[in-house]
Amino acid sequence: MAEAALKVQGTDVATPLLKVSNLEGWYGESHVLHGIDFEVRPGEVVTLLGRNGAGKTTTMKALMGILTKRKGSVVFDGHETIGLPARAIAKLGMGYVPEERGIFSSLSVEENLMLPPRVKPGGLSLDQIFELFPNIKERLSSQGTKLSGGEQQMLAIGRILRTGANLLLLDEPTEGLAPVIVQQIGATIARLKAEGFTIVLVEQNFHFASSVADRHYVVEQGKVIDTIQNAELEANIDKLHAYLGV
């Protein structure tokens, strides 16, 4: 592919959009991240794979600044974010879809969708979001938490796409969803990737992860212990099974 074609949203793909170095994190006195290292280049989809309690969700929270007691280095779009509050990190263009989806029960679907402010130009319009997730359009006046699990997941992703964030942190987007909805989420992620979004995905379902990701980082006990390119997944399947305890 020509060098010019490798430019995604004005960023050179040779430079990582996100570079995480020796990231450590604590819940109170409990040391849970012990030096996470990984990087994501513009337009890539990478996954953090690992067993329950390995530190995947905590890593996402540390990236987003929600886990405040952290050290190491997180360089996003050329900015060191380790000392920044979550709201400042969001304004740099990092969008977060939490594990439990984070739909507000006191807000309608429309209010949930419009809640995050636009942080950068280039966010999807409401029409584009409704094209991706037609179900949402029909339920705009409903209470956010009255939606089905799949619809809530679509709403959680849709509201971040509106903001113009160019790095999406998706924490277990398929958890607890019916297979047909998982397929729809997978197709959405593939489409977002094709449109140039950079995505960090936490997944336990590596079959799903392999369908959308370029690269997988295996997390165990708060560290990245292995990196597997998606093209090499088949050759490493036994190793991955062992890591995940499948």
Binding site: I66, A86, R87, Y96, P98, P116, P117, V119, T163
Partner: peptide, 23 residues
């Protein structure tokens, strides 16, 4: 919209902040 921000911050201030709002 302002009220929606306040209701969101009341319900989940951490996530509201992670959306870029100054809680």
């Amino acid at each position: 919209r302002l009220g929606a921000y306040l209701r969101a911050a009341t319900e989940n201030p951490t996530l509201t902040g992670a959306f870029g709002l100054n809680v």
